[in-house]
Amino acid sequence: MKILGVSLGTKNGNNDTMCRVALEAAKERGAEIEFIHLFDWDIKPCTGCVACSRGLVMGKG
């Protein structure tokens, strides 16, 4: 099992700590874990460019 912990609170604050503690408990039970803090990412709002769906084939599924 893979578990991703995502935090958006204060860097190294309570939210980060609680997320990491939960991830470590899951790791002890055999899970593969990863932690990310969203403030470390350069996330921009959607501009409506449709780049995310250009490669999709419509009508098949």
Rank of each mutant, 00 (worst) to 15 (best):
K2G: 01
I3Q: 03
L4S: 04
L4W: 02
L4G: 04
L4C: 02
G5A: 02
G5I: 00
G5S: 01
V6D: 03
V6N: 05
V6Y: 06
S7R: 00
L8I: 12
L8P: 00
L8F: 14
L8K: 07
G9S: 06
G9K: 01
G9E: 05
G9M: 04
G9Q: 03
G9T: 02
T10Q: 11
T10K: 11
T10R: 11
K11Y: 13
K11V: 11
N12G: 07
N14I: 12
N14G: 12
N14E: 12
N15V: 13
N15K: 07
D16Q: 04
T17I: 15
M18T: 10
M18N: 12
M18V: 13
C19N: 06
C19H: 02
C19I: 09
C19W: 00
C19R: 01
R20K: 15
R20D: 03
R20F: 02
V21M: 14
V21I: 15
A22N: 06
A22T: 10
L23T: 00
L23N: 01
E24D: 14
E24W: 09
A25R: 13
A25I: 08
A26L: 09
A26Y: 00
K27I: 01
E28W: 08
E28M: 12
R29Y: 09
G30I: 06
G30K: 05
G30L: 06
G30M: 06
G30D: 09
A31Y: 14
A31Q: 08
A31R: 05
A31D: 09
A31M: 07
A31G: 09
E34A: 15
E34P: 01
F35C: 01
F35T: 02
I36S: 03
H37P: 02
H37I: 00
H37M: 03
L38S: 07
L38R: 06
L38P: 02
F39G: 15
W41L: 15
W41I: 11
W41D: 12
D42S: 12
D42F: 05
D42W: 04
D42E: 13
D42Q: 13
I43F: 07
K44C: 06
K44E: 15
P45D: 10
P45N: 10
P45I: 01
C46M: 06
T47N: 11
T47S: 13
T47L: 13
T47G: 07
G48L: 08
G48K: 05
C49H: 04
C49I: 08
V50H: 09
V50A: 11
V50T: 14
V50Y: 13
A51G: 10
C52G: 04
C52Y: 03
C52F: 03
S53D: 10
S53P: 00
S53Y: 10
S53I: 14
R54F: 10
R54P: 01
R54S: 14
G55V: 06
G55W: 09
L56R: 10
L56V: 14
L56A: 11
L56G: 09
V57Y: 08
V57G: 08
M58L: 14
M58E: 13
M58N: 09
G59P: 01
G59K: 06
G59N: 09
K60W: 12
K60Q: 14
K60V: 15
K60H: 10
G61M: 08
G61Y: 10
G61K: 11
G61H: 11
